[in-house]
Write a protein that binds this DNA or RNA. Structure first.
Lengths: 233, 233
DNA sequence: AATATATTTGAATATAATTCAAAAATGAGT
DNA sequence: ACTCATTTTTGAATTATATTCAAATATATT
């Protein structure tokens, strides 16, 4: 059996896992079924992956690799100023996680782990086996890469005047990212007062994006009504 | 055994659960230990709670009740305009979930469930036993109440001129809430370029709040009241 | 006190994750 | 083509826990 076949097996397991996690979620997915889906024996999944969580981390890694591609592609587009790039990123980011509900869940879950990981007190609540795993380590890198792309987009926007110059790129980008995360967690129909006033993802989204733009936009954009521009300079 | 003692037991179990979920997280907490912590037998926990998840929902309900109090208290403060209320809310919301990491996790988890719940396709991935449970039903109400308070604050701000009049209260409030959720998920030290830790919760927070204020503020505000000093901008 | 009802227990059961000893396949050297 | 070593694969055994349940105990009611 060559390296390709080994990879083949790993892929089969991963695909089976993605399919099942997608359909039933992490908990309701049984390692037995994952194996069956990949047409191998139960035990073999443990040859290729340390345990169920490691398998989930591998899925998460795939999810984050896709996300990084989104960041990279947006960053590489020509003829766009920084603000336009960010708006584009937001759209594509939301599309990506809309299309891949399971990926979105995995990404969110990893960020929750990161939150624990970054806290000296709470870090010990993560399985050490996972912390040392290749997938987790790689995920740290990929997450960082995404951050780098985003921060550069804000910097670019400040340079080209599309974003307010007094904003700090790191903080600004992480605030945008946090908006995206929260947006997705809250999105879906939201009833208000049992009236028909419903906030649904499809009509929240444009308002959400507009708010974000207003928050960032610099001098080269038309000014907002009712706001004294430049009050900070 | 009177109703008080019954409640006593329930409380003891809940407290034991909170303590353990806090220390080890949901998964690593064993029903055995919960029972031990409450000084009762394992089986009795199943007399008071349907199952482990139901117990977690009960904890979540406590968490959300506390959060609703935060919303209510802020809403009731006199001599504050709408924007000031919202800024105050954001501060207190973040404080609340900073102090209660486990509550924060529970709230976030419930919102994830809500996301599934609101999607006709995905709803079936939630345990029906939970959907019908008193705790879940109550949580839907409490969540809704929080939304109502927040939306009213935005409406108030629009009326009193502290918030831009063209903003739609529902969308605006849910955007703010989504920012908060994402902020917490991302917060904690974030390394950038392996240089010194640059973005930490404590210096991200003021910038985050100011960005939010800028996003909302209407004509009557030239300066920014109630802003944490020492901002990075 | 007798009976009914509610609470409590802990051993039994069920469900999955995980391990592991043995079997099968592969590959390298002869 | 035949060792023998290494890698891969299997599935039965083990382990860990959530959950159930029949029996025991406590409490309330008449």
């Amino acid at each position: 059996m060559g390296a390709q076949e080994r990879t083949q097996r790993e892929k089969a397991i991963l695909e089976s896992a993605i399919k099942l996690f997608n359909e039933k979620g992490y908990h309701a997915t049984k390692m037995d079924e994952v194996a069956k889906g990949a047409k191998i024996s139960k035990g073999l999944t443990y040859f290729y992956f340390k345990n169920k969580e490691d398998l989930y981390m591998a899925v998460t890694r795939k999810a984050f690799e896709g996300l990084k591609d989104v960041f990279r592609d947006v960053f590489r587009t020509k003829n766009k100023n920084g603000l336009q790039m960010l708006v584009d990123l937001v759209q594509k980011y939301l599309d990506y996680s809309q299309e891949n509900r399971m990926y979105y869940q995995a990404i969110l879950n990893f960020m929750g782990m990161l939150n624990l990981y970054n806290n000296h007190e709470l870090r010990k609540s993560i399985d050490p086996l996972i912390l040392e795993s290749e997938h987790f380590q790689k995920l740290l890198d990929i997450h960082h890469d995404c951050g780098k792309f985003g921060i550069q987009m804000v910097s670019l926007g400040i340079k080209d005047g599309s974003i307010r110059p007094e904003l700090q790129p790191e903080i600004t980008f992480y605030t945008i990212w946090s908006m995206l995360i929260g947006y997705e967690r809250l999105s879906g129909p939201v009833n208000y007062e049992n009236k028909e006033i419903k906030i649904h993802i499809d009509n929240w989204k444009p308002g959400f994006i507009r708010l974000m733009q207003d928050m960032l936009k610099g001098s080269i954009q038309a000014s907002r009504p009712n706001v004294v521009q430049g009050s900070l300079f």
